[in-house]
Design a binder for these strands. Structure first.
Length: 489
RNA sequence: GGGUCGUUAGCUCAGUCGGUAGAGCACCGGCCUUUUAAGCCGGGGGCCGCAGGUUCGAUUCCUGCACGACCCA
């Protein structure tokens, strides 16, 4: 039947309800138990037991079994489901006939009645009173396959969540992960802060920003690509341990691993360095894995991930040299010759350098996929790490790591650069790249530099992609599964 | 950006070697007082993603486009 006719049929029922003086969208309903609480309290009953105990439950009707003068309904709430039993004896003949005619799958109802078990042992509520709490006007998806079509699942999220418990479960686990992160950091003296999302200069990462406009100031502002620079300014201000969990915005492509707005954790700790950040990452993510999986390992897309500490630590250059079979210590022109000879493709726009971008490209194309168990990739080239301190014994590298899990970049961290003069030089180098056409090059932020000149304590900082972490911990193949409302074309 | 596959009823899916399409669930009507994927009888429901082309005839073949999935860059 065309959808419009199904909706029209329900609207007709709705009109008849209103005509009878029933408010199909009332204000509230006091329930005494959720479905799970009922099972908790009465789950031990023998078949065909009448308790004499009155309860009130509420939820969505997800199944209706009409048997003439008796009807069973499955009521789903946030905790699970409970069966409702309707008969003329308990509900009254007139009310029974009326509701059996006017209830539809998907309607939200409240039911007051006695707890009992059927002769097959199903815990049920025998309705003495039924209250319509919201009439549903649209048909539900198929009752045992649910809603499968991924496009509809992503475009009509409410429908997906009400039809597919697994979809809801991911959001519940996401909340658990966020709660675990906050607890972990709060217990260690970190202060949760909120920094600007509307920024005059988008800083703290290499990415293209979204632009917006403030009418009163008549000035363009950018949605942040990262909170990094503001959080470091709080270190200057003496906060010492700060973190922010919030949305970043990057004006880039959409894929199974990228959404234009995504949630990141950034944490900064004074008087430590990137070694400290590795320990923080291990502890924090281990706590999340234990909270979600109850063990330090879990399966992702058919393959186990072992989170046992300590995690592997491997220098980037070593990793890339081994994966590509090239001598990556060579200057860029010679490296390109070797890569060409070996048939390893390098996109044209990277060939002019800086060399760090080629190294990064090799990591992405040759090595990343195999980094399955958590792996810290260490010591990134200086020219692609403008906010990180130089490595102590290698001035062309920085004390920076990325954490890879299941072949995905999950975190990025540095020993934070706090020398204001060197930071200015690094920004100027980025400006030169921008002048050569690199739209992702970072920009000079004078407010940040001024605050650095006040003295920022040595510090370690880390950013963790919450969506990707949640994907891994919920065995989700696409970022869309872990977002309540992913952006679609 | 390139390749492969997909798009059929509200949902889940069949199918048409080119002759205007089926099932189950859902919906509507009937029977039914312990079902739980309830059952039985009957009924209605389709721009076969969109636009062109080939053809007497296209949902089916071809081209393009849109959207999606996967792979590659």
């Amino acid at each position: 039947m065309p959808e419009q006719e199904l909706i029209a049929a329900r609207k007709e029922k709705l009109a008849r309800l209103r005509a009878r003086g029933i408010n199909p969208y009332p204000y509230s309903f006091s329930r005494t138990h959720t479905a799970a609480e009922l099972r908790q309290a009465f789950g031990h009953l023998n078949p065909a037991t009448h308790t004499g105990q009155g309860v009130a439950v509420a939820g969505r009707i997800m199944a209706l079994r009409r048997m003439g003068r008796a009807t069973f309904a499955d009521l789903h709430d946030r905790s699970g489901k409970i069966q409702i039993f309707l008969t003329p004896q308990t509900l009254g003949p007139e009310a029974y006939a009326f509701w059996v005619e006017h209830l539809d799958l998907g309607d939200l109802v409240g039911v007051r009645g006695e707890v009992f078990t059927t002769r097959t042992g199903e815990l049920s509520v025998a309705a003495q009173e039924l209250v319509l709490l919201a009439k549903a006007l649209r048909p539900l998806p198929e009752k045992w396959h649910g809603l499968r079509d991924v496009e509809t699942r992503y475009r009509e999220r409410a429908l997906d969540f009400l039809a597919n418990p697994q979809s809801r479960e991911i959001l519940i686990k996401r909340a658990l992960i966020l709660r675990t992160i906050r607890n972990y950091l709060d217990e260690r003296g970190f202060i949760e802060v909120e920094t600007p999302i509307l920024q005059p200069i988008p800083g703290g990462a290499s990415a293209r920003p979204f632009v917006t406009h403030h009418n009163e100031l008549d000035r363009d502002l950018y949605l942040r690509i990262a909170p990094e620079l503001y959080l470091k300014r709080l270190l200057v201000g003496g906060l010492e341990r700060v973190y922010e969990i919030g949305r970043n915005f990057r004006n880039e492509g959409i894929s199974s691993e990228h959404n234009p707005e995504f949630t990141a954790l950034e944490a900064y700790e004074a008087y430590t360095d990137y070694q400290g950040m590795m320990e923080l990452a291990e502890g924090l993510i281990e706590a999340c894995v234990l909270a979600v999986a109850g063990a330090p390992h879990l399966e992702y897309q058919g393959r186990m991930i072992n989170f046992s500490r300590p995690w592997r630590r491997v220098p980037l250059l070593e990793l890339v040299a081994e994966a590509s079979g090239c001598d990556v210590e060579k200057p860029l022109p010679e490296l390109l010759v070797e890569l060409d000879r070996k048939g390893i493709p390098v996109p044209e726009h990277l060939r002019r350098g800086p060399k760090g971008k080629v190294i990064e490209h090799l990591l992405e194309t040759c090595a990343e996929k195999d980094l399955w168990d958590p792996t810290f990739v260490l010591d990134y080239p200086l020219d692609i790490s403008p906010l990180a301190k130089r490595k102590r014994d290698r001035p062309d590298l920085t004390e920076r790591f990325e954490l890879y899990i299941a072949g995905r970049e999950v975190a990025n961290a540095f020993s934070e650069l706090n020398d204001p003069e060197e930071q200015r030089e690094r920004f100027l180098a980025q400006e030169r790249l921008r002048a050569q056409g690199d739209e992702e090059a970072q920009r000079i932020d004078e407010d940040f530099l001024r605050d650095l000149e006040l003295g920022m304590p040595p510090a370690g900082g880390i950013g963790i992609g919450i969506d990707r972490l949640t994907m891994i911990l919920t065995n989700s193949p696409s970022i869309r599964e872990v977002l309540a409302f992913p952006l679609l074309r």
